[in-house]
Computed example of a mutant assay.
Amino acid sequence: MLKTGKKIFYILWGVLLIYFLYSYIKNPEILSVDYIKNWISSYKGHILIVYILISLVRGFFLIPSTPFVIVGALLFPDNLFLVLVISMLGIMLSATSLYYFSDLLGFSEYLEKKYPEKVKKWESKLQSSKATYLVLGWSFFPLVPTDIICYVAGIIKMPFKYMFMGVFIGELVLVSFYIYSGSFLNL
């Protein structure tokens, strides 16, 4: 029964990822700030609820949070702290899910067989208490997806608290910057 549920989950997740990838290839503007802002704005009476739901589920599809954070600042310029809280909840939910479900996705065995030296190298780096700083730096750097470090941390069984604190602090700084600089676009 568990294997059937796992297969169904993989199939649904795969179909949705393929759909989003196809949509992005067909129309790359779907991840632009203006497109997302207009799409969310089309739900006039429920705009905050739609924004919260999208912020919470976007990580499951490995969609970057940056456009959604900036859109939040543009849509709710009078509630920037609320945008910060919603964005951080979505990011931390995504990070936690990727950490705990990394083995469920089944890539760990593949990576350990294909790249045993690299896995050992990352394992030694991410097992120490200083690993928080590595994760923090990775999370703060905007050109690399935070999802990757969360996934790797889960695969190698990095202590959750180190991963969580690194992602939280790094993303808090980055998201705060996005929100407050994004809010100036409204002027």
Rank of each mutant, 00 (worst) to 15 (best):
M92C: 00
Y51N: 02
K44I: 12
G59P: 03
V50N: 00
L62D: 01
G45H: 10
S42H: 11
I36E: 06
H46K: 15
N79L: 13
F61R: 08
W39H: 12
I30V: 15
K37S: 12
L53C: 11
F60P: 02
Y35M: 07
L53I: 13
V71L: 08
F60N: 06
I47T: 13
P77I: 07
S23L: 02
L93N: 03
F20N: 10
V83G: 01
I47C: 06
V33W: 07
L75A: 02
I86Y: 00
L48E: 14
F76L: 08
H46F: 15
S55A: 08
M92T: 00
V33S: 05
L53E: 03
D78C: 01
Y35P: 04
A73M: 05
N27D: 15
V71W: 09
L89K: 03
S87K: 00
S32L: 09
A73Q: 08
I40K: 01
F81L: 15
I52P: 02
K26I: 11
F60D: 01
L89Y: 00
L21S: 14
D34I: 12
S42I: 01
T66R: 12
L82G: 13
P28E: 04
K44R: 14
Y51K: 03
S87W: 00
M88C: 00
P28G: 09
S41Y: 05
L75E: 08
I52G: 01
P67Y: 11
S65M: 13
G90N: 04
F68A: 04
P77N: 09
I25Q: 05
L74I: 15
M88N: 00
F68T: 07
L89R: 01
Y35S: 07
M92I: 03
L48Q: 13
V69P: 03
S32G: 13
Y35H: 11
L75V: 04
F61N: 08
L31Y: 15
Y22A: 14
P64Y: 14
I91L: 04
K37G: 08
I91N: 05
I63A: 08
L62Q: 04
L75W: 06
Y43E: 07
V33H: 03
N79W: 12
I86C: 03
I63V: 14
S32D: 14
Y22I: 13
L31A: 06
V57E: 04
M92F: 03
H46W: 14
I52N: 10
Y43T: 02
V57N: 07
I30K: 05
I91F: 03
K37L: 14
V85F: 05
N27K: 13
S41C: 09
Y24N: 10
I54L: 12
I40W: 01
P77T: 09
S41R: 06
I52K: 03
L75C: 08
R58T: 01
K44H: 13
W39Q: 12
L84I: 04
K26R: 15
F81V: 15
S32Q: 11
I86F: 04
S94Q: 13
S42E: 10
F60H: 06
P77W: 08
I63D: 06
S94C: 12
L75Q: 06
I70D: 02
G59K: 00
K37M: 11
L75H: 06
